[in-house]
């Protein structure tokens, strides 16, 4: 089965984000979600009933930011709105975007 290049991420409030599959794979959680024989792997549609669109949008931004800069040196920091930093800390934990792993620090 030819896999689509994109996957759809759905927030708790029903917003959908279509993201490049390769960019999403920076997250070990997403990787696990998409590689095995679970429902998401077959549909390419991942629903997050406990993540709001505001947060998911930032996460998607990060996916793209990571994908753009994954091989670059001296990458500028991604801008994080201060008021969201706590939610994003949690999202980072949920998606495994923490060091030391691929989404945290490259190796």
């Amino acid at each position: 089965m030819a896999q689509s290049q994109y996957v759809t991420l759905v927030s708790s409030d029903g917003y959908e984000f279509v993201v490049l599959r390769e960019a999403v794979l920076v997250s070990p959680t997403m990787k696990g979600m998409l590689r095995s024989q679970f429902q998401e792997a077959q549909t390419g549609r991942c629903t997050f009933p406990e993540i709001s669109a505001v947060v998911l949008e930032m996460v998607v931004d990060y996916f793209h930011y990571w994908y753009r800069n994954r091989d670059k040196e001296d990458v500028p920091d991604i801008e994080i709105p201060v008021e969201m930093c706590l939610e994003l800390l949690l999202a980072a934990a949920y998606f495994g975007l923490e060091p030391p792993s691929r989404g945290g620090t490259t190796w």
Binding site: V59, Y62, Y65, W66, N69, R70, D71, K72, E73, V75, D77, I78, E79, I80, P81, V82, M84, C85, L86, L88, L89, A91, A92, A93, F95, L97, E98, P99, G103, G104, T105, T106
Partner: peptide, 13 residues
């Protein structure tokens, strides 16, 4: 190479 983690970015903010 590559960007910082989302975790660290949030922490820095």
């Amino acid at each position: 190479r590559g960007p910082k983690s989302l975790f660290e970015a949030a922490m820095r903010a």
